[in-house]
Simulated assay, not measured.
Amino acid sequence: MGQASSPTTSALRALSMEFKSLQEEPVEGFSVKLADEDNLFQWEVAIFGPPHTLYEGGYFKANMKFPVDYPYSPPTLKFLTKVWHPNVYENGDLCISILHPPIDDPQSGELPCERWNPTQNVRTILLSVISLLNEPNTFSPANVDASVMYRRWKDSSGKDKEYENIIRKQVAASRYEAEKDNVVVPTTIEEYCIKYKSKPPEMEADLADFYDDDYEDMDDDLDESDEG
């Protein structure tokens, strides 16, 4: 626990490599930048609403904060843009299994395998968030009112418009924010799906080496009681 207040070398390495990877090989649906060039532990994220969903054309800004022992503990994600959604708290905090520590908690309805593990990364997190936008988890909602409203909309096959109308208003408001930020939001499948020029294989090899090295370090650092 003595290292809790200062970044570990493995965290700095992991974040540096991930950020570089996402700059060189962008992923459809989101973009990332550092909130402060000198701080790898706070990222600014822009998530674009997927085409053919209620969120199409939306531009949702969020902050990601990484713990000093990343990737062994998950980051947090907080929306800065207003998002009415069953899995987003009123204050913008996101509640999603992949960002929960891998403890066995039967009350949550989540399996340990659905939660965070050190092989996850920013890419897998943000793709999970995009998926969650369109397919909320209403089992244990962060926003009960949004969850009830979403179920009404779903059960009525879209005839109950309350949920849909709120989302569409938020998407429209987010477009003004995109214009202010000079961001062009993708609205078609063609625009949304970025075609990479090439995938740098050395990046995959670097990440594999990183995790191999660090699992050995982790075995030394963690008590047996922390397994799982």
Rank of each mutant, 00 (worst) to 15 (best):
L54T: 02
P50F: 05
F60E: 02
Y72M: 04
I130C: 10
F30D: 00
L15H: 03
D213A: 11
D214N: 14
K65H: 15
E224C: 07
K161H: 11
L22D: 07
L126D: 05
H85N: 10
P186K: 00
K199C: 08
Q170I: 07
G228Q: 04
T53L: 05
A172M: 05
Y70Q: 03
G57R: 04
E110P: 00
F30R: 07
S128E: 05
I103R: 15
M64N: 04
E224L: 07
G29T: 05
S128P: 02
D36I: 00
L94D: 02
Y163I: 09
A208F: 12
D226M: 10
W43L: 00
L54P: 00
K161L: 13
D226S: 13
H52Q: 14
V68H: 15
I103S: 15
A62H: 00
C113R: 09
L77M: 11
A146W: 01
L54Y: 02
H85T: 04
Y196N: 15
E191L: 11
A62F: 03
I194E: 11
R13P: 03
D217Q: 10
W153N: 03
G57S: 02
A14I: 03
T8V: 06
N121K: 07
L15D: 01
V122F: 08
P201H: 09
V122A: 12
N117M: 06
V88K: 01
M218V: 07
S5Q: 14
I189M: 15
V83R: 06
V185N: 01
R115A: 02
V27I: 14
A14V: 03
S73M: 11
S6R: 15
R175N: 13
D69M: 01
S31C: 10
S16E: 12
D104E: 13
K195S: 14
N121F: 07
K20S: 14
F30M: 07
E202D: 11
H100C: 10
T81F: 04
F60P: 00
D104P: 03
P112K: 09
P7C: 09
